[in-house]
């Protein structure tokens, strides 16, 4: 395991004593969970266990009432800590692909020639140079999500929160996007929520399974090898049944 443990040993995100209830039901009770810096941690769990809620708490969503502490690594400004990507691409249909990629800078009024050039570059690197001036309506689901990924990366935040980002895509597109995502987010602190054990095994430096009510960590392990792992590779073949089993045990629904 030493191969994949954090080089710095620093925690990118620390959640301490998170308490939260929803509809008089406890979702988290004194939940403590750390996320290693520069690594991709996959949060797995049955639907409704609170994994999405947890990353919304980390994102600073003000509509969620909770007690406890979310801390980022020292030196990280809270308001510039996270970038977020959700299952829905959230592309603005009235903006071109290029403008969508630069949305953050546009909203902050920071559009400069450099930003524009950088956005062009990331689009070109992702093979989407020809679509710069198109509107999202002409893109396929996979392309839209690719643009959303690039928009997330353009923010250059140290922490990237991903909430089932590829779950609405077909299997082939999903594999391609997982590879692209793993390649582009390398070195960042990524927290990826997924319900797909295969996705977790492909992308996770560490996999955390949440379960029960209130949610607890029921499994926490670091599969070997570097991400993205091959879909038919030995780690996936070995770990998949085990992971599926621990998920099935937790899924009471």
């Amino acid at each position: 395991m030493s191969l994949i443990s954090s080089k710095t040993g620093v925690q990118g995100v620390s959640c301490r004593n998170i308490n939260m209830s929803y509809d008089k039901k406890l979702v988290f009770e004194n939940l403590c969970l750390d996320f290693e810096e520069g690594r991709c941690t996959c949060l797995l769990g049955p639907s409704g266990c609170g994994k999405s809620t947890l990353i919304r708490i980390i994102s600073g969503n003000k509509s969620i009432v909770y007690t406890g502490d979310v801390r980022f690594r020292e030196g990280v400004n809270n308001s510039e800590a996270v970038a977020w990507m959700s299952q829905k691409d959230l592309l603005l249909p009235w903006m071109t692909v290029l403008d969508n990629v630069m949305l953050g800078a546009k909203l902050r009024g920071e559009i400069t020639l450099e930003v524009r050039q950088k956005a062009r570059q990331v689009l070109a690197d992702a093979g989407m140079a020809d679509y710069e001036t198109c509107h999202p309506a002409v893109l396929s689901g996979g392309m839209r999500q690719r643009v959303a990924l690039l928009r997330t990366l353009m923010e250059e935040r140290p922490i990237i929160l991903m909430d089932e980002p590829f779950s609405a895509l077909d299997a082939l597109t999903r594999l391609k996007l997982q590879d692209l995502s793993a390649q582009l987010t390398r070195g960042k602190t990524v927290i990826l929520v997924t319900h797909d054990p295969m996705e977790a095994l492909r992308l996770g430096d560490r996999i955390v399974v949440l379960g029960g009510s209130p949610a607890k960590v029921v499994a926490d392990f670091k599969p070997e090898g570097s991400v993205p792992r091959e879909s038919g590779g030995p780690v996936l073949v070995a770990e998949y049944p085990r992971l599926l089993q621990s998920l099935l045990c937790e899924d009471v629904a």
Binding site: G104, K106, L107
Partner: peptide, 26 residues
């Protein structure tokens, strides 16, 4: 306007006037 869109804008550090201009009004 979709809640998630507003959340995304907030995380991007947008002020309310630019959210209004670029997201809510369109």
């Amino acid at each position: 306007t979709e809640e998630d869109l507003l959340e995304l804008s907030r995380m991007m550090g947008a002020g309310s006037s630019s959210i209004l201009r670029f997201v809510v009004i369109p």
